[in-house]
Design a protein around this nucleic acid. Structure first.
Length: 432
DNA sequence: TCTGGGGTCCTAGGACCC
DNA sequence: TCTGGGGTCCTAGGACCC
């Protein structure tokens, strides 16, 4: 048995905790560069604002409907998430933190009234953190997700489902005929794992509701679609196929990508951006004690705007697996130099670290140059400590270091400049 | 002027090997 | 000139998630 606890309109709810005046009105949170809506209050949803709606298309609602749009504050949301998750963990013996705003709780061995218990935990999360949640319970993770969808819809759209299922929906306690009625009233694309594309394909063959999907034969689904959809059908039928994962698996790839506020055309600006992406990706890599074997760097023009298109990426193999910011920045700069072409309005670029492995597997490699390796490790530990303490970007790899790297890569030998630069002037005063 | 930033898994097809 | 089957590895692309 599983529960899914999921915050309502999470980013908006976080903002409302600190600005209660936002309660009751339409509020959205915008992505970086204030590009598009990534969270919407119920009132904003009622205005017809879609997830991902570009800000410039809905900006008129500011005046027309009193819409409040906020720039995202991800540090705040991460902190609120931690608080919410620690309270949610009280629902059962095991927990999988599935995303910033939802966690699965394993309920094996729990007795008593799980619905009442869920209401109590939900009330505690609201009281202690200010975040409203919905809870779904079912025999499988997919059913818990389904229950969560029903719980939140019943609350937000009265009449969509029985009022008694609002906030907490425990499918495991329902009579089969009652569950069938709920499934018959739910669109198939509301199922976890069924997206727009598969939803359309299912619709085309007459599978419109969750009940239709749950009644298909798994083997037929497997041959006509995929093993993924087969698993989803089995889970809807109550057969657990997806287990709870308590320890987050080490990432298989680490990405740092951004859209630019204004298009970039020149190589120096692109180099600076890509250096920053590589540096941040390297810090994420060290946080999971990993090494990267390859680095991918890409840049492209906007897919939404007219004009000449450009989209290229390149994979740069590393001579040996590393988590050293300097080597990763060097590789990214080398890659971007390879693929860059002038004359394009570049809207986005990014760096991905690939072929990751734990840093324990390469002890032998590191010992090849023991003193050098120790120095590098110490430098990176200090680098991360300073950025953790004083904020991201307090210290970074400067362009001088980049050029130094180019020298060792045999590129751009015309400028040999000093070692790494630091924004000392930006450092806060440290009190003894 | 203005359209997010992460991730995962599966599949198909080609290269290569025996 | 024609002709087999099976396995592995890699990559690109699609679909999904939040």
């Amino acid at each position: 048995m599983f529960a899914l606890i999921d915050a309502s309109n999470f980013y908006v709810s976080c903002e409302r905790v600190f600005r209660p005046s936002l309660n009751g009105g339409p509020v959205i949170v915008l992505s970086s560069n204030d590009g598009c809506a990534i969270a919407r209050s119920n009132e904003a949803k009622a205005l017809g604002i879609k997830m991902g709606a570009p800000w410039f298309q809905i900006k008129h609602l500011e005046h027309a409907a009193g819409l409040v749009a906020l720039s995202a504050n991800f540090a705040l949301y991460g902190d609120m998430s931690n608080r919410m998750m620690s309270v949610a963990a009280g629902l059962g013996p095991t927990q999988e933190i599935y995303s910033i705003d939802e966690s699965f709780i394993g309920l094996e061995g729990m007795c008593g009234d799980l619905t009442r218990r869920s209401h109590a935990i939900r009330a505690r999360i609201l009281q202690w953190t200010g975040i409203p949640c919905g809870v779904g319970i079912g025999a499988t993770k997919t059913l818990a997700k389904m229950g969560n969808h029903i719980a939140k819809s019943a609350e937000r759209k009265p009449g969509s489902y029985p009022e008694s299922l609002a906030i907490v929906c425990n499918l495991a306690t329902l009579a089969p005929s009652d569950q069938d009625a709920l499934f018959a009233a739910t669109d198939v694309s509301d199922v976890w794992g069924v997206g727009r594309r598969i939803g359309q394909q299912l619709n085309a063959v007459g599978v419109k509701t969750v009940l239709d999907l749950a009644r298909l034969s798994p083997s037929v689904v497997r041959s006509s679609w995929s093993v993924m959809l087969e698993r989803t059908v089995r889970e809807l039928q109550g057969e657990p196929c997806i287990s709870l994962e308590e320890a987050p698996a080490a990432k298989q790839q680490i990405a740092c990508t951004r859209s630019f506020g204004h298009p970039i055309t020149d190589l120096p600006a692109l180099t600076e951006a890509v250096s920053e992406f590589a540096s941040r990706a390297a810090q994420k890599l060290r946080r999971q004690s990993g090494l990267a074997g390859q680095l991918l760097v890409f840049a492209h023009t906007s897919p939404f705007r007219p004009g000449p298109r450009f989209s290229r990426s390149i994979v740069v193999p590393l001579r040996r697996p590393t988590a050293d910011t300097r080597l990763l920045v060097h590789a990214a700069v080398m890659g971007i130099n390879q693929i860059y072409q002038p004359g394009f309005q570049l809207s986005k670029a990014g760096v991905m670290l690939l072929d990751l492995m734990p840093d324990t597997v390469c002890q032998g490699e590191l010992n090849f140059e023991p003193e050098d390796a120790k120095d590098k490790t110490r430098l990176m530990i200090a680098f991360d400590a300073i950025n953790d303490r004083f904020g991201r970007g307090t210290i970074h790899i400067g362009s001088a270091g980049v050029q130094d790297a180019n020298r060792s890569w045999g590129m751009r030998q015309e400028r040999l400049t000093p070692q790494y630069t630091t924004k000392w002037s930006d450092l806060p005063v440290v009190r003894a």
